[in-house]
Design a protein around this nucleic acid. Structure first.
Lengths: 159, 159
DNA sequence: CCCTATTACTTGACATATCAACTATCGTCG
DNA sequence: CGACGATAGTTGATATGTCAAGTAATAGGG
């Protein structure tokens, strides 16, 4: 029930209090990503690791049995991670990864997932799959594909 | 340097395909949100505040001249924020907000943006608008609307 | 070869986030 | 009123993130 006394500007602000459609989309995107991340954390943290740590384990499982150098892992991560060294320190302390200096190029530190790390993932992956299914795969496939395309073009413009 | 034109799979140098379309979408979403967040940080941090702090200032500007209680601010934020008290402490230390115990209900702590805070936003908001325009508004409006809708249905299922 | 730039981390100092108590206040119901 | 649970924040301990400077090794030019 619009109230003419408020003026059109303010009336519009009630339904869309955003400065632009782009601003609204940015907020929607960030808010949704946070919700998805929180949701994943709920699955992963009872197993004693964070979302970031889970991400690293998945990367190392993907390259297994080949090790990866530290910064290579950082580059493959979902979220930009300058503190990758210490993140690996924590996984190392939990015996989920192991590291060794590369003999070919002694600047590199090779890192790989341990048996314990792979066992952890065996228990976790099905739960994550289930979570993905319940959240994103609940949309029609066409929309999920749309989403993936949209994300890609946004990343392209953000640089 | 990642090249988004390659698509998410090549971008994170994954050799194996995603376990499901939903998994791919989840990764795309989180990665894109991180990129947008990093982009915003580049705009906001030269002015001495973080993205979260900027978000709080925007919220308080929106309610100005009315103050908001601490947890109310936390609930309006883009990202879940249990540490809202200390976040406000930092803004308080920078004289960008002020707080006072509510006299009606002495459990509440009222918080509002200062003149200095509003001045800061005056300089910042145009830059953020520009950033939004360059990233999300570069897409056709129809797609931006699609994005907003998609985000909403995802948040609905995650909840 | 040696010198310099670049790469690949590592470390220290500091900022921020998270979780779990703990305090103060309010609303309610007997 | 007075006990009780609920609400709103605060605080301490700890974990994690961030930035800048430092170290070690390699690559490449002269």
């Amino acid at each position: 029930m619009p109230n003419p006394a408020l003026g059109i500007q303010q009336e519009i602000k009630q339904t869309r209090p955003f400065r632009s459609l782009g601003a609204e989309a940015a907020v929607a995107l960030l808010r949704t990503a946070d919700a998805v991340r929180t949701y994943m954390a709920k699955v992963v943290e009872p197993h004693g690791i964070t979302v970031q740590q889970y991400n690293v384990l998945r990367i190392l499982k993907g390259s297994f049995p080949n090790p990866l150098p530290t910064l290579e892992i950082g580059e493959r991560m979902i979220e930009r991670q300058p503190g990758i060294t210490r993140l690996l320190d924590r996984l190392d302390a939990k015996k989920l990864v192991r590291r060794e200096r590369c003999t070919k190029d002694r600047r590199l530190m090779h890192c790989w997932i341990t048996d314990a790390g792979r066992q952890l993932l065996e228990g976790l992956d099905p739960k994550i799959d289930e979570a993905d299914r319940r959240t994103l795969s609940s949309l029609p496939e066409r929309e999920v594909r749309q989403l993936i395309d949209l994300m890609q073009s946004i990343r392209a413009t953000v640089k």
